[in-house]
Simulated scan of single mutants.
Amino acid sequence: MAWVPPGVFLMGSDSRLAQRNEKPAHPVRVKGFWMDLTHVTNDQFAEFVRQTGHVTTAERTPDWETVRVQLPPGTPRPPDSVLVPGALVFVGTDRPVNLADYSQWWRYVPGADWRHPQGPGSSIEGKGDHPVVQVSYADVQAYARWAGKRMPTEAEWEYAARGGLEQATYVWGDELMPDGKPMANYWDSGRGAFPVVSPEAGGAAGTLPVMSFPANGYGLYDMTGNAWQWVADWYDARYFARQAQAAQGKPIADPRGPPRSYDPSDPGVPADAPRRVIRGGSFLCNESYCLAYRPSARQAADPYSPMSHVGFRLVSDAPPPASPSVLARLWPH
């Protein structure tokens, strides 16, 4: 873990790239905390499962009452044969499509889970150092209890992601590719137009090993790109505007998020359906669609729906225990 010192920063953004839910930028004060250097990896999650026997959300039969609140009112209950363990998987398209309909490139795939991120036949073999994905909000909470850590608040996550750079466009600065080098794992338009996946277009490369790119100013790796990251807060599209109004120019101390969620972006789903915040973007983010590999970008996610591009990292208020190798160096005798 890396120490993130206490401080005051401008949360959100007023830049031309910012979405409405990122505005306006407003002052926030956070206490110091420790944060995982990287996403929690497949190997780390496998050890948690080995020790606890945890069965993830994707490996359980979906509960209709939980699913129902995420659907248009009046949606009839499907037959039990449809309610089978699985998760959402990016499948892409074979041609350019209207980007207003994300159902064209996402599928619910029976048998998809953290061990099989793209469904039966896929594997994490040889990917122990990749971010674990296909984990729900509840799975992250369970891991956090086992690890003796907690989920970061949205404010803590953004403060840490910025690495001490005030209102920079990206976690490494204002230039997307300094010296022509990519600084994060996102959808490279050189591989083709999102969401086209074909031998000719290339398409999504998927996750990469953690630490594939330089760390930010606080020594944290992959704060944007690779895989989205769950944070503790409920999602409310109006939250930043309300926080700025309440602050009146004075820093808000350690905000913990709104008391409930509000997301009017999908007219077919109730605006108060449960939604948690995810941050950082993923290997699917690109200039033409979400441009979420920016520290202020934020998105709503169904806490009960694991996805093939969402993972997590944790924080702690106490310093992490030293490893045996560190102790040996400090006290060799």
Rank of each mutant, 00 (worst) to 15 (best):
A144S: 11
A144N: 08
S136M: 07
A193H: 10
P195S: 11
G190A: 10
M183H: 12
G190N: 13
A144R: 02
G192N: 09
A168G: 08
W187D: 05
E156L: 02
D139W: 02
T169L: 15
A155Y: 00
P182H: 13
A193C: 09
P182M: 14
M151D: 01
Q134G: 05
V135Q: 01
A138V: 03
G192T: 12
Y143W: 11
V171W: 02
R150Y: 03
T153Y: 00
Y143V: 01
Y186K: 01
E158N: 10
G148W: 11
D174E: 15
E154R: 05
E154H: 10
P195G: 09
Y143Q: 00
D188W: 11
E166K: 15
A184V: 05
S136W: 03
Y186H: 04
L176N: 11
Y170H: 14
V133D: 00
G148D: 14
R191L: 13
V140P: 00
E166W: 11
G192C: 12
E156S: 01
V135P: 01
Q134A: 10
A144K: 01
R191I: 09
V133I: 15
V196T: 15
Y137I: 04
W157F: 11
T169P: 06
Y143T: 02
R150Q: 09
A193I: 14
R162T: 04
G148C: 11
M177S: 14
L176P: 04
N185T: 05
G192Y: 09
T169A: 15
G180Q: 14
D188I: 08
A184E: 05
S189Y: 09
W157N: 02
Y159H: 07
E166C: 09
M151F: 06
Q167E: 13
F194Q: 07
A168W: 00
G163E: 04
A161R: 01
R145F: 04
A138Q: 11
K149L: 08
M183F: 09
T169W: 08
V171N: 02
T153S: 15
Q167T: 10
D174F: 12
E166Q: 15
V133S: 00
D139S: 05
N185D: 06
A161K: 00
V196I: 14
A155K: 02
R191M: 10
W172Y: 10
Y170G: 03
G148F: 12
S136L: 06
R150C: 06
K149A: 06
P195C: 09
M177C: 14
W146L: 06
Y159F: 15
Q167H: 12
W187K: 07
